[in-house]
């Protein structure tokens, strides 16, 4: 057997508890926890702290379950790519069957528990999110189109919408805007990564934009998405979740995000290779800061309004 996923047998290779946790993509879960929590706390309806905690926990578990399903299906791609080759399935710690079973069971538990803890609208959106990430993105889009992460990014954009639904039982302009911010942010974030990780995607045969259309086109796309994101993110400041604090943060962060994208667009491959993709790596890191700071500003805005009764429009 040459398949690494079949290399499970001796007890030295047995999975530890941490390997099963790794199956749930804890770093992605941290983003889910944060954005879902913001969705719950900026909503105009008070949620009991314990219910909010449980709801966020099961939203995160649902996200983790979809991560396990992704690792089950993508074991072949993960084994080829350097960045993912040490994941539990390609490393031979967890079998494909275990990843699938864990993914399906945790999905079911997360959806049912979220429904029981909060409401079935939130649970329904969570179920759709898991389906979207595991089936639409992982099984279909990822291997088929360079627009994979554009459409697939929707899966990562749902958590604040689910959080909002936990509190309000529905969907509104504000929750859609939070969805749109993450949805429009995802392509520049991943394309910046693919600019300096291009070989990995190319080797695995994943049709990332850098592989199919080249890096120059990708740089143009990053600038276009950053420019489209800015007005939408700033517009959120003028809704019920916005205010002076968020507006100031959004103006600064979006100006920097667009300026960074413009700088990447100005560069060519020769310049990037000469300095080891310094600007691209810096932009990728800033994109993470951008998202955490944007949602952090929404949270601070909400706490400011709730705590001092001021600051909102």
């Amino acid at each position: 057997m040459t398949d690494a996923t079949q290399n499970v047998g001796s007890y030295e290779d047995e999975a530890q508890f941490g390997d099963y946790v790794a199956l749930l993509k804890p770093r992605v879960m941290s983003l889910v926890v944060f954005t879902a929590a913001v969705g719950v706390f900026v909503a105009p309806v008070h949620v009991h702290p314990f219910v909010a905690f449980v709801a966020i926990l099961f939203i995160a578990l649902g996200g983790g379950a979809s991560g396990a399903l992704n690792m089950w299906y993508d074991h072949d791609i993960d084994a080829v790519m350097k960045r993912t080759s040490r994941r539990p399935v390609p490393a031979g710690k967890v079998t494909k069957g275990e990843a699938l079973t864990i993914g399906l069971w945790l999905s079911a538990i997360a959806v049912v528990m979220l429904g029981l803890a909060s409401n079935w609208v939130a649970a329904g959106i969570l179920a759709f999110t898991i389906f979207f990430y595991a089936v639409i993105y992982t099984m279909w889009l990822k291997r088929w189109t360079p627009q994979n992460i554009v459409i697939g990014g929707a899966a990562g954009a749902f958590p604040p919408m689910i959080g909002w639904a936990v509190a309000t039982g529905g969907v509104s302009v504000e929750s859609v805007l939070m969805f749109v911010i993450i949805f429009m942010w995802t392509p520049p974030h991943f394309w910046a990564l693919s600019l300096f990780m291009n070989e990995d995607y190319s080797k695995a045969g994943v049709p990332m934009l850098t592989v199919t259309h080249g890096k120059t086109v990708t740089r143009k796309h990053i600038l276009a998405y950053a420019a489209l994101l800015a007005p939408l993110a700033i517009y959120a400041a003028f809704t019920s979740i916005g205010g002076w604090i968020y507006l100031a943060a959004a103006l600064y962060l979006n100006a920097k995000f667009v300026y960074g994208a413009w700088q990447l667009w100005q560069r060519n491959d020769a310049a990037a290779e000469a300095d080891g993709y310094k600007a691209e790596k810096k932009y990728f890191r800033f994109s993470l800061t951008y998202l955490f700071a944007s949602f952090g500003a929404l949270l601070v805005q909400a706490l400011w309004v709730q705590g001092f009764g001021m600051g909102a429009w």
């Binding site: 007890y11 530890q16 508890f17 941490g18």
Partner: peptide, 12 residues
Amino acid sequence: ELHKRRFSRNAG
């Protein structure tokens, strides 16, 4: 050694 390795998993 097997029991030691499995303990952390079972405890988890």
